[in-house]
Every structure is written in C-alpha cells, then in structure tokens.
Design a protein around this nucleic acid. Structure first.
Lengths: 143, 143
DNA sequence: ATGGGTGCAAATAATTTGCAGGTAA
DNA sequence: TTACCTGCAAATTATTTGCACCCAT
C-alpha cells in the first residue's frame, strides 16, 4: 500500500478540523475552506472526510436533517458525546455503567455481538446564559 | 379543528404498521403496501408517517445511510431500543441508571435542559443461530 | 357542498461516482 | 514517470412540495 500523499487540500482540511472543537458538516467545512481562500473541491472534502472517518481519525454523527457531521477524535478509546444544541460544542464523556448496562440488557434478551450509541444533548452553560444566540451550527472562522 | 378523516389509505398503512414489530423505512412500507395490492401513493405514505410521528403515535430512528425508520410506539413513556442488526427486530428497554447517568454527566459539565438518545445494536438469538441471513431490512410480509 | 386527503410530477439536498487532467514522490 | 489525488459535472437517493382532483363527512 503506497503511503498517502501530502497535498495542499489535505493540509487545509486538517487545519480547519483542528481549529474547531465541535461537530461540523461536510458542507460547512467546505464553506469555511472557501472563505479562507483555500481552493478545495467539495468532492475532495467528501473524499478526505470519508477516508479519515474510516481510518478512525474522525468521529461522526448524523443530524436529524440527515447531514453527517465530523469532528477530530480526541481519545482513541470508546466514548460518547455531550453536545450543546445551541453552539454545537461537544464534550467527550465516558460511562462504564452505561457500557455494562447495555451488555446486560442485550444479553438478557439473547442478543450477542453488542454495540451501542449514546448521545446526550443539552444547552451548555454559555448558551444558557445568553438565550437567542441561534448559531446552531455556527462558523466563527475567517473574516 | 376538523377531525381526521377515515380513508382507505390510512387504514392500510395503519394495518401494515401494526403487523410489524420492527422499524421500517417509508420506502419499505410503501413497497409492502403495493405488494399487498393496496394502491397508496408514496407521497401519502410520507404524509401519514410524518403526521403520525408528530402526533407521537410512532417512534422514529435514522439508519447510518440516512433513511428514517418508523415503528408503532408501544409504550408512551420514555424508553430506548435494542435492535437486531440482522432482522431489524426491536425490543423496547428501559434504564433508570442511564437516565440518571446522563443527567449527572450533563450537569457536571454545566449543561441544562438535557435530552438523550441511546440505542443498542446486536444480533438476536434467532439470527445468531442461522448466520448469513442477510435480510438487513427484511420484509416478511405478504406472498 | 367542502375542505382535508391523495398522489403525480418536479424540486430539494446531501453525498457518491465517472473520468480527465494534475502532481507529489 | 507513475498512479494517487483532485474536482467538475452528472447521477443517486430519501424526502418534500406544488397543485389539480377526489371523497368522507
């Protein structure tokens, strides 16, 4: 397997991902890239995003509207997310008890080869303080 | 507000929903309806599905591929799902400890107005017994 | 009669794919 | 040079919407 090549586009995307702590959509990242003057194609963004996600370098989520959101993965081990419904900020959390509960419940029903998804959504302290800041999936980049 | 009307299409959809214990996509339900000879339009299926979901009569999920799945809601109170990745069968489960854990973790990070999603995926006893039955989103209806 | 219900056709929207040309190694 | 990468354009796919007609009440 030939090693991955270093391209301007890859570097640009990686940079943007590193500068945002919250989940962002492909379309969003693409727009951000363009606003920075980086000339990267939408197709490339999708290509890279998928490649990185498959390589385990990115965490992914789906919004209720069907968009896939990506975010640089902090810890390598299993974890869940606590996401702010206002600003999109995400905190990685762990919960041994939940893992156990899932295993237990599944086993109790005769299920094997268990996997699970947990996501907690709420309003973070900052957003709770100043209501009305409807920057659901805000940028905050460039300019 | 005028009461809902009783139509052949609504009844047909309701019947199909009642006969399946697992989550099914709109496309899937539509195909099933047609295979039964029921002449219902895809648009109507979507219309009804959305109306029922908003009315709280249906539970909804999203597959990784972006499809929305619907299923008649058994219990009215909060619960989660244990789904079989092979046949799609779903069991409604509860977990007081998880609810508490979510509240606790969220509060610890300063988040308020908490909501959460939990989904356990596994292979049910039946499917584990006869591997290879790749009916990912099986019908099981008619014929 | 009448207004909610229906469904064909066209519109959306996110994401994927074909493929010709670019470029890192 | 080589084949991986890029990105335009077109294709896919689930779902929504415009709208004229129909039927349960």
């Amino acid at each position: 397997m030939a090693p991955q090549r270093e391209t301007r586009q890859k570097r640009a995307l990686a940079t943007v991902l590193d500068q945002t702590p919250s989940f962002r959509s492909a379309q969003d990242l693409f727009a951000d890239l363009r606003s920075r003057g980086e000339n990267v194609g939408l197709t490339t963004v999708y290509n890279q995003l998928r490649a990185m996600a498959e390589a385990g370098a990115l965490d992914t989520r789906r919004t209720d509207e069907g968009e896939t959101l990506y975010r640089r993965c902090g810890t390598a081990h299993h974890h869940h997310h606590l996401v702010c419904r206002q600003c999109g900020a995400a905190v990685e959390v762990e919960g041994p008890e939940v893992e156990q509960w899932a295993e237990q419940v599944a086993g109790h029903h005769g299920f094997v080869d268990i996997a699970h998804t947990v996501e907690i959504v709420g309003t973070c302290a900052a957003c709770a303080g100043r209501p009305g800041s409807r920057s659901h999936r805000g940028h905050g980049a460039s300019t």
